Computed example of a mutant assay.
Amino acid sequence: MSEHTPFSFSPEHKDGVYEAIYKRRDMRHFKPDPVDPELMAKLLHAANAAPSVGLMQPWRFIRITDQALREEMHLLVDEERHNTAEALGERGKEFMKLKVEGVRECGELLVVTLMDRREGHIFGRRTLPQMDLASVSCAIQNIWLAARAEGLGVGWVSLFDPDKLKSLLKMPDDSLPIAILCIGHVEAFYDEPMLEQLGWRQRGQLDDMVMENGWDADKAERSHQQDK
């Protein structure tokens, strides 16, 4: 039973937060039904409410509404899919059997990017400049959890050449695409993450991820064993 404080949500609201977290899935199978514009606006507002270092809000969102552009993006993803399979060596053939994106099928396609002129933001980034990337990841997670609560699926696609996608979308040189998000209606959510269902990889145990007062080499090694 969780501890109650004066600032706790109601039990029902707390249950809803945890349900969204544990039932979130990286979806690859979508129905072509369009996403209601008001609902899409709610998801983007949720993303914009994410925490960011120095309140710099480094995220920029590019909605893809042109079908021809969507097809070009699909080709970029497919190109990287083959390159990844080659890099995986003996697991390449197994990888090629996986469905890794729903760029063509999803109702809404969104490219999440890092802003340009980021070097001007020093607060929280002087020694850790990658904190802008961490902030964008928080915005993506907000979209994901809000979408799950609304019954929509989200798939994070990272199989693309960033420079080629930047060129395709006419982005500034000092900006960077981070994710292609497939968003839309689904027939059903996976009972467990798809890569677990298909035997590609199993989720590691929390005990191997939590260390105390310093680095635990034994735990770190155990967490790496599934990569071998």
Rank of each mutant, 00 (worst) to 15 (best):
S167C: 08
I122S: 06
R125A: 02
L145R: 00
N142T: 02
P177G: 06
L195T: 11
E187S: 12
R125G: 00
K170W: 04
C182W: 05
F189T: 07
P177V: 00
D132L: 02
L128S: 09
Y190D: 14
A146E: 10
F123G: 00
F123E: 13
G155T: 08
L110H: 07
D116F: 00
L128F: 06
L181N: 08
K166V: 05
Q130F: 14
Q130T: 08
L110K: 01
L145V: 00
V111Q: 00
P172K: 04
F123K: 06
Q130H: 13
Q205N: 15
V186A: 10
P193D: 13
D161N: 14
L181W: 04
D116S: 07
F189L: 08
L128V: 03
P172V: 03
Y190M: 07
R126I: 11
R126G: 06
R203S: 09
S158H: 08
E212R: 15
G199Q: 03
I143C: 00
A146I: 03
L198F: 05
W200Q: 12
D191M: 08
L195I: 14
S175V: 03
I140R: 01
Q197V: 04
D173N: 11
R201W: 13
F123A: 05
E150D: 14
D116Q: 11
S167M: 10
P177F: 00
W144N: 00
Q202H: 15
